[in-house]
Amino acid sequence: MQLLFLGTGAGMPSKQRNTSAIALKLLEERGSVWLFDCGEATQHQILRTSIKPRKIEKVFITHLHGDHIFGLPGLLGSRSFQGGDEPLDLYGPEGIREFVETMLRLSRTHLSYPIRFHEQLEGVIFEDDAMLVETALLDHVIPSYGYRITQKPLPPKLQIGKATALGVPKGPLLAKLKNGEDVVLEDGTTVKSDEVTEPGNRGFIVSILGDTRFCQAAAELSHGADVMVHEATFDAETKKLAGEYGHSTILEAAETARLASAKLLVANHISARFLPEDEKRLLQQARSIHSNTAIAQDFSEFAWNQHSQKMRKI
């Protein structure tokens, strides 16, 4: 799994940062990409990466402010033009369906694939054998949601040496043991799965939060996360503005990460008022509360290492 930031700015694009979009690359896990928010010119940002729009399986919208959705029309059309014919699941607050369908109708855009809309965002919104996605309402000036993505524990690891020592031949019986099934050999001997396997590694937990004031829901949704992506539109000196406009300071993002016991905080959604030379000061503010903090740049990428069970910047 890799987390690739396509846009990290707040409100409008700047020379340093495009508007909000994050790609969760699950190419090894499921051969697809999940996109979180789709600000203006997201597809232009994608052109500078290895991501193929037809590989985008799901899009999760945190809220309906323009800097989080104005890139959807172009991206949805391009996904069609580039041969995407698999269904797309689109999750977002009530109104996202109306926005997309109105745009498609007025622009007479025909898509080569169906869109499945999901506007009920509370609790578990997606689950299969490998992944779980939960959501909760945050505290912004319009309904804004956070997403918690959990990879379920990986399958047990087969200890082939033990299995062969017990007489298990190469072939389908090994696969059954790995999948947790007991098997019976030709001589009638039963080999139990737990005799020749060890538990698989736990999966990752990622929380990606929409625009929000400091709130308990963000900490609860991010509890124990390997990486928490939290907006940091303002700093300590502009805390009053943060509250008025429904945003957080980088100090509040760090405090949320501390309360959540999140392992890594990636501060995102940075106001254009902050120039590159301000980032050292912003990091110092955040790390005074949560030491393992990074500030996302456009095209910053973080990868999950299954062996170390940690996220690292690449």
Rank of each mutant, 00 (worst) to 15 (best):
residue 99 F to L: 14
residue 188 G to N: 06
residue 33 V to C: 11
residue 175 A to P: 09
residue 292 N to L: 09
residue 220 E to N: 09
residue 122 E to V: 07
residue 104 L to S: 10
residue 127 E to T: 04
residue 188 G to M: 11
residue 26 L to A: 04
residue 218 A to T: 15
residue 106 L to S: 13
residue 163 A to Y: 02
residue 142 I to R: 11
residue 83 G to H: 13
residue 22 I to M: 03
residue 267 A to E: 05
residue 263 K to G: 01
residue 247 H to M: 14
residue 94 E to D: 08
residue 300 S to N: 07
residue 177 L to I: 10
residue 136 A to P: 04
residue 202 R to W: 03
residue 279 E to P: 04
residue 149 I to F: 01
residue 235 D to H: 02
residue 208 I to K: 04
residue 204 F to I: 02
residue 80 S to F: 10
residue 72 L to D: 04
residue 43 Q to L: 05
residue 133 V to R: 09
residue 268 N to G: 03
residue 69 I to H: 11
residue 103 M to V: 10
residue 91 Y to D: 00
residue 17 R to G: 09
residue 112 S to G: 05
residue 259 L to A: 02
residue 82 Q to M: 15
residue 47 L to R: 14
residue 107 S to F: 12
residue 284 Q to V: 02
residue 72 L to R: 15
residue 134 E to K: 02
residue 53 P to N: 14
residue 120 Q to L: 10
residue 15 K to V: 11
residue 100 V to T: 05
residue 88 L to V: 11
residue 125 I to M: 05
residue 111 L to S: 05
residue 218 A to E: 10
residue 188 G to Q: 07
residue 242 A to R: 03
residue 95 G to A: 15
residue 235 D to Y: 05
residue 310 K to T: 15
residue 121 L to T: 12
residue 137 L to S: 15
residue 53 P to K: 09
residue 151 Q to W: 02
residue 133 V to D: 12
residue 182 D to H: 09
residue 162 K to D: 07
residue 162 K to R: 07
residue 150 T to D: 11
residue 90 L to I: 01
residue 242 A to Q: 10
residue 179 N to L: 07
residue 99 F to M: 13
residue 308 S to T: 05
residue 124 V to A: 03
residue 305 N to L: 01
residue 30 R to G: 00
residue 174 L to N: 12
residue 214 F to D: 15
residue 133 V to L: 15
residue 140 H to F: 14
residue 211 D to M: 14
residue 189 T to I: 00
residue 263 K to P: 02
residue 224 G to H: 05
residue 254 A to E: 13
residue 11 G to M: 06
residue 235 D to G: 09
residue 173 L to F: 00
residue 43 Q to S: 03
residue 116 R to K: 07
residue 99 F to R: 14
residue 200 G to Y: 02
residue 296 A to S: 00
residue 289 I to P: 08
residue 40 E to I: 11
residue 241 L to G: 08
residue 11 G to L: 08
residue 264 L to P: 07
residue 97 R to E: 13
residue 40 E to R: 09
residue 67 D to M: 07
residue 185 L to N: 01
residue 224 G to S: 06
residue 30 R to W: 02
residue 236 A to S: 05
residue 247 H to E: 10
residue 195 E to R: 07
residue 255 E to T: 14
residue 185 L to D: 13
residue 116 R to C: 10
residue 267 A to V: 13
residue 243 G to R: 15
residue 229 V to Y: 09
residue 173 L to I: 00
residue 94 E to M: 15
residue 156 P to Y: 04
residue 113 Y to I: 08
residue 187 D to V: 00
residue 229 V to R: 06
residue 59 V to N: 06
residue 190 T to S: 10
residue 271 S to V: 01
residue 42 T to Y: 06
residue 222 S to D: 03
residue 295 I to C: 10
residue 70 F to R: 15
residue 245 Y to C: 10
residue 34 W to E: 05
residue 195 E to V: 01
residue 128 D to H: 06
residue 55 K to G: 08
residue 105 R to A: 11
residue 7 G to N: 08
residue 214 F to S: 15
residue 101 E to R: 06
